[in-house]
Amino acid sequence: MDNEMILLDGFPLTGPAREGVWKRLGELEGWFDSPDPKRKSVQRENGDGNYPSEIHYESRLITFTGRVTSKNHKYLHEAGNRLVALPGRGGKQFVVKGHGPTQEAIVDPRGKVSITFPTDTRMEFQIPLEAVDPFKYGERRFKSVASGASDTVFHRGTVEAWPSVTVSGSMPDGYTVTIGGQSVSVPMGIPSGATHTIDYRRRRLYVNGSLFMGAFGASNFRSVPPGRRTTAALAAPSGSGSATFTVYDTYV
C-alpha cells in the first residue's frame, strides 16, 4: 500500500531512504493474525474431557520479508549492515501504520536476519521477530481525577486493557484507587512531591520510579473493557491529591 509505513527501532522498513527504496514483500506474517492460544489441560479421571482452565496467548511471532533497491552496490551493503543490527538484543519497537489504527509491539530477535543479493543493486531479506507480550497497542489515553471525585476511562481497542495509575499529592493516611467498582488501596502515606505509580498488569507499585514491595491493602486489580466507559475514582481518608489513569488501545 502507498501509505504503509513499517518501522523497527525507529527505522522505516518501507519507503525511500538514503540506502535505497525499501519495500515489503508478501504478507506481514503473524501481525494481522491472532497469536496461538494456550491453556493447561487437566484431565477428568472419572469423566469425559478435561477441566476448564483459563486461556492465555503465546508470544506473537512476526516475520517481515522485504527488498531494498539501491542506486549502487556500496549503498546496498550499507543497507545490509544497518538491517542486521536493527533487532539488536531485543526490546525494540515495531510499528505498523497505514492499515487502520497505528499499532505497535515490543519485539525481540527470533532468529538470524537472512540476506540475499540477487543483483549488485538489489537485496532481499527476512527478519524473524517475537513479541513476548502478544498484544498490539495503539493510542494512549489519559484521564486525571482529583481525590474525592470520579470520571470515566475507556479505550478503542478490541480486548481488555490494563491501566497504569500515577498518584501524587499529600495523603498521609494512604489512598484507594477504584476502577469499575474494584478497589486497590495503598495504606502507606504519600507525601507532597512524591509520585506513586500502580502498574495494574504486573500488580506492582513504584515509588518515585523504584519498585516497592508489599504495599497494597485491598488489591482487586481490574482491567478496562474495550469500547465501554468505566468509572474511575480516587479516595483518601486525609489530605488531597490526584490520579492520572493511562490506558492504551489494546488489540490482539
Score class of each variant (00 low, 15 high):
residue 229 R to W: 05
residue 143 K to Q: 15
residue 156 R to T: 11
residue 183 S to E: 07
residue 64 F to C: 03
residue 6 I to N: 09
residue 141 R to F: 06
residue 198 I to W: 11
residue 84 V to E: 13
residue 156 R to W: 02
residue 28 L to W: 07
residue 220 N to Y: 13
residue 179 I to N: 07
residue 47 G to E: 06
residue 46 N to V: 09
residue 244 T to C: 00
residue 82 R to Y: 02
residue 106 I to V: 15
residue 237 P to R: 09
residue 226 P to H: 01
residue 115 I to M: 12
residue 149 A to K: 10
residue 26 G to K: 05
residue 128 P to N: 03
residue 55 I to E: 13
residue 98 G to N: 11
residue 145 V to T: 02
residue 167 V to D: 12
residue 40 K to Y: 02
residue 223 S to V: 03
residue 200 Y to S: 15
residue 136 K to A: 09
residue 57 Y to M: 10
residue 137 Y to K: 00
residue 39 R to E: 11
residue 129 L to N: 10
residue 6 I to M: 06
residue 9 D to C: 05
residue 126 Q to K: 14
residue 184 V to P: 04
residue 74 K to Q: 14
residue 90 G to N: 05
residue 146 A to E: 13
residue 125 F to N: 01
residue 36 D to E: 15
residue 5 M to V: 15
residue 119 T to Q: 05
residue 242 S to K: 12
residue 53 S to M: 08
residue 122 R to N: 03
residue 157 G to I: 00
residue 68 V to H: 06
residue 91 G to A: 09
residue 28 L to E: 05
residue 107 V to H: 04
residue 85 A to F: 04
residue 218 A to R: 15
residue 230 T to P: 07
residue 238 S to Q: 12
residue 127 I to M: 06
residue 34 S to G: 13
residue 119 T to L: 07
residue 41 S to P: 07
residue 205 L to R: 13
residue 90 G to L: 03
residue 77 H to D: 06
residue 179 I to H: 05
residue 9 D to G: 14
residue 120 D to A: 15
residue 149 A to L: 03
residue 222 R to N: 15
residue 127 I to G: 03
residue 57 Y to A: 13
residue 104 E to C: 09
residue 190 I to V: 12
residue 210 S to P: 00
residue 83 L to T: 00
residue 84 V to G: 10
residue 147 S to K: 06
residue 66 G to S: 06
residue 77 H to I: 03
residue 203 R to T: 05
residue 118 P to H: 01
residue 181 G to V: 08
residue 5 M to L: 07
residue 230 T to K: 05
residue 217 G to K: 02
residue 207 V to N: 10
residue 186 V to M: 09
residue 33 D to V: 07
residue 208 N to F: 10
residue 110 R to M: 11
residue 108 D to V: 00
residue 125 F to D: 05
residue 78 E to N: 12
residue 15 G to P: 01
residue 143 K to Y: 03
residue 97 K to N: 07
residue 197 T to F: 00
residue 67 R to G: 08
residue 72 N to M: 04
residue 88 G to R: 15
residue 103 Q to T: 07
residue 197 T to H: 00
residue 148 G to C: 01
residue 127 I to H: 02
residue 105 A to T: 08
residue 227 G to Q: 14
residue 28 L to K: 02
residue 133 D to C: 04
residue 164 S to L: 11
residue 92 K to S: 04
residue 93 Q to S: 06
residue 161 A to N: 11
residue 209 G to I: 12
residue 35 P to R: 06
residue 134 P to M: 01
residue 76 L to C: 06
residue 163 P to Q: 05
residue 146 A to Q: 10
residue 149 A to M: 00
residue 163 P to C: 03
residue 73 H to A: 14
residue 124 E to S: 10
residue 11 F to S: 01
residue 126 Q to C: 10
residue 191 P to T: 09
residue 165 V to G: 00
residue 209 G to C: 11
residue 51 Y to H: 15
residue 171 M to F: 03
residue 82 R to N: 09
residue 93 Q to N: 07
residue 8 L to C: 02
residue 171 M to E: 01
residue 53 S to K: 09
residue 49 G to I: 11
residue 246 T to K: 08
residue 126 Q to F: 01
residue 138 G to N: 04
residue 64 F to N: 06
residue 247 V to R: 08
residue 153 V to A: 03
residue 139 E to F: 11
